[in-house]
Design a protein around this nucleic acid. Structure first.
Lengths: 195, 195
DNA sequence: CCTAACTAAACGAACGTTTAGTTAGGTAGG
DNA sequence: CCTACCTAACTAAACGTTCGTTTAGTTAGG
């Protein structure tokens, strides 16, 4: 029965991640989570100490599972710096574009995360991404402020999809703008064109 | 006594904006709002039909009051396009950097706003800003996709302060990065350097 | 037969909201 | 000038609901 524990736990984490991402911590009740899992509210407390612990576990689970794709891209060797930058921007854009659970939880944490949770967000999600961008930019755009530029790339990608619903109603919008490929192309063009 | 009504109403709007911006809609109770206003919960219902109407009124109030500074910059004539762009980026960056109530409510709406509220966000907050950027970019950077580039400028500025707490813990950070002047300089440099 | 995983039921607290009554400032009639 | 009254702005108290959580008991696989 030890197997059922981890099964239920993982199932709860994924199912709860969706609820928290969609509605936010305060707007999701333990009863709602239990209903979604076809369980009794009390059963949740077999797997998590309280609502806070459940939320923390959800963040841990989502961060770990979602940044693996990025780390895989990072680990690729034997490419030119330009290719690595492009592959990396596309991977990050793809995750942000397609994984609403990840990106919404991330934006929620940026709004409401405690200092301790921001620290985890920083090290577990952004540290490696940021270092990669900065290192590549040092080689590819030597005249720029790497810290600022790497940040700008990340925030353009995050904001591009955060503001998607508004962007689509502004003049000049084309559906192609939503594609991670288009975004990657233009972000790189923006950052790499010399003075 | 008609005066007391609008006084209390405005006071409630500003005080409640702070609470909603800080904690989010679901995490703020009517009792908490009443306590902050030194009123009874029931008194709130003299001024607003229910919690939703209060939140809507807060958004309306904040959007109207905060975008006036931007519109003033937009109305300035007799400047070069480059000066206008710079003044405009700085004004937007200044608001986003200094007015946490505005920027946090904005990010919350981007996460949780209904279709109707997103429409208001689009027209009341972003439409004019976006048009100005796009128009200026058409003259200053003719080779670019204006829609994408204008959006990129807005999202860099929004994301720069949204991610500030993470940015400060990443290698290469300097306090100067937080200044709207620095941000404006680098955003313009990023966008205006030709191929 | 033990233990892990659950259910049924309930706890007190807090929630949004309503009802009934109170207060205070403006206004009209004498 | 005074008084009687009206209404807007409030308070005190309670409504029923939902919240997070706990307790006690049940079930089923090793």
């Amino acid at each position: 029965m030890a197997r059922a524990q981890t099964d239920t736990r993982t199932r709860l984490l994924e199912l709860t991640a969706e609820l928290f991402a969609e509605l936010g911590y305060a707007a999701v009740s333990m009863r709602e989570i239990a209903r979604a899992a076809a369980l009794t509210p009390a059963a949740l407390y077999r797997h998590f100490a309280d609502k806070d612990a459940l939320y923390e576990a959800v963040l841990e689970h989502v961060y770990r599972s979602r940044t693996q794709a990025l780390h895989a891209v990072l680990a690729m060797d034997g490419q030119s710096n330009a290719d690595m930058l492009r592959g990396f921007v596309m991977a990050f854009a793809g995750i942000v574009a397609n994984d609403k659970i990840f990106s919404r939880l991330l934006h929620r944490e940026l709004l409401d995360g405690s200092a301790a949770r921001m620290q985890r967000l920083s090290t577990q999600v952004f540290q490696e991404t940021f270092d990669s961008f900065a290192t590549l930019l040092r080689a590819l755009a030597p005249g720029r402020d790497h810290h600022f530029t790497a940040n700008a790339m990340i925030t353009i990608i995050l904001g591009h999809y955060e503001c998607a619903v508004i962007r689509r109603s502004l003049p000049g919008y084309l559906p192609i703008h939503d594609s991670p490929d288009f975004l990657a192309d233009h972000v790189i063009k923006l950052v790499l064109t010399g003075p």
